[in-house]
């Protein structure tokens, strides 16, 4: 793996993330890309715990823990304070889970990016409320079991397309990234860092605990999400310039689903239906990317 910032480390060992935690990997890569001049705003999420209890900290950059729904707003305030202090060097990054982004924090996020606040919002997406014990969120994919969508009541609604929601705000930069593609992730974070205004990065971060997968498979499954088109890697500049970063191998989604306990109940018919949904989403994305050419 070739990364310029390979040696830069802004995280300590000994945090309390679960074995194989995708969110921990995502943070590690992101901070490698951002460097020491970074302030992390951390609304309630798994990382509120992983970041460590008083008087210790997992990170080597300052962290402002904040209320669940305030990721966009607190970062706006931090940026404003830095601006009035004349600090243009420091990057403000909000680091939120899918619950804090798709659901409870969506308003503050929408407000902040509508104002085009100069910060990076990273949503590390583990597709449910994992910190509270695997409850469904609007990021939970169609078909998934969670503790609040148990048994035959598995989630029948599709995952909210958060990137498109952000793109609709016409922010300078919105992108997806994935822990299995570190070079791409780091490049996107660095690109976001160099741009002014609101930047949104949606990072796929697998959760062995909540997805009922073996811990060693967490990166493999993350990679498969891209390979199957379930989570395409792409970026959108100024709300209209789409670039697809990875031409997937078009594996069948079935391969991805059958590895995960949270999808165990799905029938072949369900999987066929999901395949159609994925194909449809991919077609839509391709069209958007092509229209610019």
């Amino acid at each position: 793996m070739e990364l310029d910032t390979k040696d830069d480390e802004y995280m300590y060992s000994g945090h309390v993330g679960c074995p194989g935690c995708g969110a921990a990997i995502a943070m590690r890569f992101t901070l490698k890309a951002l460097g020491a001049k970074t302030i992390v705003v951390l609304p309630a999420c798994c990382w509120s715990i992983i970041a460590g209890p008083y008087p210790q900290s997992t990170l080597k950059v300052p962290v402002i823990h904040s209320a669940f729904e305030t990721g966009g707003a607190v970062a706006s305030g931090v940026r404003a304070a830095l601006d009035v202090k004349g600090d243009t060097e420091t990057t403000v990054v909000t680091w939120a889970g899918d619950g804090g982004t798709f659901d409870i924090g969506f308003q503050a996020l929408s407000g902040a990016v509508e104002r085009n606040e100069d910060f990076i919002y990273v949503c590390y997406d583990n597709e449910a409320y994992m910190n509270t014990g695997v409850q469904r969120s609007s990021s939970t994919p169609y078909g998934a079991w969670t503790t609040t969508t148990p048994g035959q009541d598995w989630k029948k609604m599709r995952k909210k397309n958060i990137v498109e929601a952000l793109v609709a705000h016409r922010i300078p930069y919105a992108a997806t990234a994935n822990i299995a593609f570190p070079e791409d992730l780091v490049r996107k974070v660095q690109k976001a860092k160099a741009l002014k205004g609101s930047k949104f990065i949606h990072v796929y971060a697998s959760c062995p605990t909540g997805w009922r997968i073996p811990s060693e498979m967490s990166v493999k499954i993350a990679r498969m999400a891209v390979q199957t088109n379930i989570f395409p890697l792409y970026e959108v500049e100024n709300g209209n310039k789409y670039t697809i970063n990875y031409k997937p191998k078009e594996y069948l989604v079935r391969e991805y689903f059958k590895l995960q306990g949270r999808f165990r109940h799905l029938t072949d018919r369900d999987l066929d239906q999901i395949q159609e949904m994925v194909n449809e989403d991919w077609e839509v994305l391709l069209r958007k990317a092509a229209e610019r050419v």
């Binding site: 402002i64 707003a73 404003a80 830095l82 202090k85 503050a108 407000g111 902040a112």
Partner: peptide
């Protein structure tokens, strides 16, 4: 800097961020 935020909740949240920076 005047932040015209989208709710009172965010108004105070933003100040929490700003005031934390001194």
């Amino acid at each position: 800097r005047f932040l015209r935020v989208e709710s009172e909740h965010s108004a105070l949240a933003a100040l929490i961020g700003a005031q934390s920076c001194g």
